[in-house]
């Protein structure tokens, strides 16, 4: 096995990437990792921009008479 992995640079690269992908997928499946780009949570402030999605539910009647 060791000889196969260290046979040349390509087999080594493939093995490392495979191990990396398996680790990330298994960890992601166990922890149910979700991206949190829109959630800012630090010691100064907390801002959840995902709430902005609620704005899309607002109904604006642009044809209403002024």
């Amino acid at each position: 096995m060791k000889d196969l992995v260290l046979k040349n640079r390509y087999t080594l690269l493939l093995t490392v990437i495979l191990a990396y992908v398996i680790l990330i997928v298994v960890e992601g499946a166990i922890t149910d990792r979700q991206p949190d780009w829109l959630l800012f949570d630090n010691s100064l402030f907390t801002l959840d921009l995902r709430d902005i999605e609620e704005l899309s539910n607002l109904d604006f009647d642009l044809n209403a008479d002024l």
Partner: peptide, 10 residues
């Protein structure tokens, strides 16, 4: 699936 992109985004 998007396990890798979730990981990178985090």
């Amino acid at each position: 699936t998007q396990f890798l992109s979730n990981w990178i985004e985090t």
